[in-house]
């Protein structure tokens, strides 16, 4: 006897979602709930005691300039992320037009994203050495005045690190933009061409509105990536004070200063901030429309 489609549907929904949702709950929501619990304790990370401290950890975060101030070090990643999207969109538009050597350019620009993240960090560590490859290159291009001790100069180092992130990830954004551009029907372009609309106007009035959702997705990824920057400073500078992002500080609080409770509260604050920034950004870019 065959099952009705209605019953099939219910079975399928449950059957198809149960494993993925179980994974989601086990490895994301359950740990997140634990994190919330720890954030109200002064647990040291090892002890069997979890002394309850109420909101103390949260008030500490907002009153200790050392803790909250480390968001300043995330700022360069944030700006870098915005530039990354502009660059990615620019190249995506170029590569979606008729162009000689299109697939070669496309493949090469995507290349950095394919490289192992640790390898990329090491390559740039080498490049940024004082008097290293980058400085030598600038010198030989007659741009010697731009030479710097890229890692050693506290006002430059975070921009140098943010650039690594831009270099590594813009290819990913570019490919996503490319996909979106290709899905804009050819007829729209043609119609615009017949109207005699200029290049810029075509882009702004025909293409941009169609890209809104995808720009949002890309920004969402880069913004949350910027606020949670960790790997690049961790590998390249060992998270030294001038490069300690909020998340690096969180890990220090947990494992150098043995205050897992406070670190958990910092993680929750970070989560909320990312959420707020994303919401604001959605209002600005997306006109209030939901992404998914």
């Amino acid at each position: 006897m065959k099952m009705s489609y209605r019953m099939q549907k219910n079975l399928l929904i449950v059957g198809f979602l149960i494993v993925p949702l179980a994974l989601l709950v086990t490895f994301s929501f359950y740990p997140a709930i634990k994190l919330i619990y720890y954030s109200f304790t002064s647990w040291d990370g090892l002890s069997q005691q979890y002394p309850w401290v109420g909101w103390t950890n949260y008030t500490t975060i907002f009153t200790d300039p050392q803790l909250f101030g480390s968001f300043l070090h995330n700022f360069s990643y944030f700006i870098g992320g915005l530039i990354q999207n502009v660059v990615a969109l620019y190249f995506a538009v170029l590569l979606s037009s008729k162009l000689k050597g299109r697939s070669f350019f496309r493949a090469t620009l995507f290349l950095p994203y394919m490289l192992n993240a640790v390898a990329v960090a090491f390559i740039f560590k080498f490049l940024y050495l004082d008097g290293g490859a980058l400085d030598t290159l600038l010198q030989s291009l007659g741009l010697g005045f731009l030479q710097h001790d890229w890692i050693g100069n506290d006002s430059i180092v975070n921009w140098a690190l943010a650039f690594v992130s831009l270099w590594e990830f813009f290819g990913f954004n570019m490919v996503i933009y490319l996909a979106a551009l290709q899905s804009i029907p050819e007829e729209l372009h043609e119609a615009a061409a017949l109207d005699g609309a200029g290049r810029f106007r075509t882009f702004w009035y025909i293409i941009m509105p169609n890209l809104r959702a995808i720009i949002q997705i890309n920004l969402l990824l880069t913004v949350s990536g910027a606020l949670e920057a960790f790997n690049i400073p961790f590998v390249m500078t060992n998270g030294s004070p001038p490069t300690a992002t909020f998340l690096i500080n969180t890990m220090n609080v947990a494992f150098t200063f043995n205050n897992y409770g406070l670190a958990s509260a910092m993680a929750i604050v970070l989560l909320v901030i990312v959420f707020l920034v994303i919401t604001v950004q959605q209002r600005l870019v997306g006109g209030g429309k939901d992404v998914v």
């Binding site: 994301s28 929501f29 740990p31 634990k34 994190l35 720890y38 670190a263 958990s264 993680a267 998914v292």
Partner: peptide, 29 residues
């Protein structure tokens, strides 16, 4: 189906959790 939005929202929220900070609990699992 009824909880569809919730499922999608759940996947979206998870994106914002800084995974490196949840390691103690994940380790336990």
């Amino acid at each position: 189906f009824p909880l569809k939005k919730l499922v999608l929202g759940a996947y979206l929220v998870v994106l914002f959790i800084p995974t490196i900070t949840t390691q103690v609990a994940v380790f336990g699992v």
